[in-house]
Design a protein around this nucleic acid. Structure first.
Lengths: 183, 183
DNA sequence: AAGTATATATATCAGATTGATATATATAAT
DNA sequence: ATTATATATATCAATCTGATATATATACTT
């Protein structure tokens, strides 16, 4: 998906700054996609100069002004059109998998060359990480009001449910089968 | 993980050409990690000039010579040492998740802006893809002899088992809950 | 029989992306 | 008092990808 479409899509969920978009990639979206500051900021500037988003500068004493971007009507039109062509391209490409770089899987793949204590640490930390993530996905308590609106989106419900089962399955498998790697 | 460590690790499973390493990334490793030709070929050349791998050129009438690389003793030493520092860095970084870019999840996230038929196609193709992958992971029949050796590795058994359950879980969830996205 | 597509095989490189760094301050923790 | 973390934007060297070039064989299509 083009970075413009993605930024517009995220802004369609509510006005946000570049910093806050990055926070989404590091938080709730971290298991699905990510963009760096070096991509986000220039993209927002381009979208603004083409009037796909508007920008309100919030002065903050001594911190850089917070630039809050809002998607425009023109931007919404572009987003929907791009989304359709991105989906068409997804189908056309025949490439339905995800792009993944997993340090964990590589360490497991070469685990026979790792000292046992190191392998234990890697496994323990991974399981701990998965459990924390699972809690985040399942958590249903109070959250900031901007995010509360998101939670009602059908797509978010679907994704949270999918992520939860996948994490649960992963945790269960690793806990049951990690002994296999050591004999 | 450094690209050198990764290439050495794959060559520790048996001698291979750059093209064949790429095939591993496109085949069995595709759901865990990938490197492009533009990274693989220069890395192999560097490893060779530092004597971490040796190279036998197999002349082939009119195709470019196939360069088959074999890891050296020096290379095995470097690989084990690097693997340990890579694992240490994995622990130190506190970043235990995977780097993921999933076009599918983005399309689901913004599915309310997609026409229903397009969403159906995306879902159908994704499920089909997952089912094919699952079959590949579960398949236990005859395979080329180089790969047969791999199959006996403990780490490969662990990974195939994990991948299989995760794909099964994913398929089941999508099939049961895809209606949620449409009301 | 001719043409098209795909597979083998290495190499290179423009363009895109990341990860780190710069800048500036507030607040929390040690 | 010092260190670390968080807010906030911006930039850029270093790296990586995706595409292209080169050359041929084989399989499929019309």
């Amino acid at each position: 998906m083009q970075k413009e479409t993605l930024c517009l899509g995220l802004l369609s969920l509510g006005p946000r700054s570049g910093y806050e978009i990055k926070q989404m990639f590091e938080g709730p979206l971290s298991d699905f996609y990510s963009l760096s500051f070096g991509t986000i900021y220039p993209t927002l500037n381009n979208l603004q100069s083409s009037k796909y988003v508007s920008c309100k500068q919030h002065a903050q004493s001594k911190k850089p002004d917070k630039k809050v971007y809002t998607i425009t009507k023109k931007g919404l039109v572009l987003m929907k059109s791009n989304l359709l062509s991105d989906a068409t391209e997804y189908i056309r490409s025949g490439n339905f998998g995800d792009q993944i770089k997993s340090e964990f899987f590589l360490l497991v793949l070469f685990s026979k060359y790792l000292p046992n204590e190191m392998l234990d640490t890697v496994m323990n930390e991974r399981v701990l990480y998965l459990k924390q993530k699972l809690e985040q996905f399942k958590y249903d308590g109070p959250i900031p009001s901007e995010l509360a609106a998101l939670r009602k989106e059908k797509s978010i419900k679907f994704i949270r449910g999918l992520a939860s089962t996948l994490f649960e399955t992963g945790i269960r498998y690793v806990e049951k089968n990690r002994y296999l790697l050591k004999e």
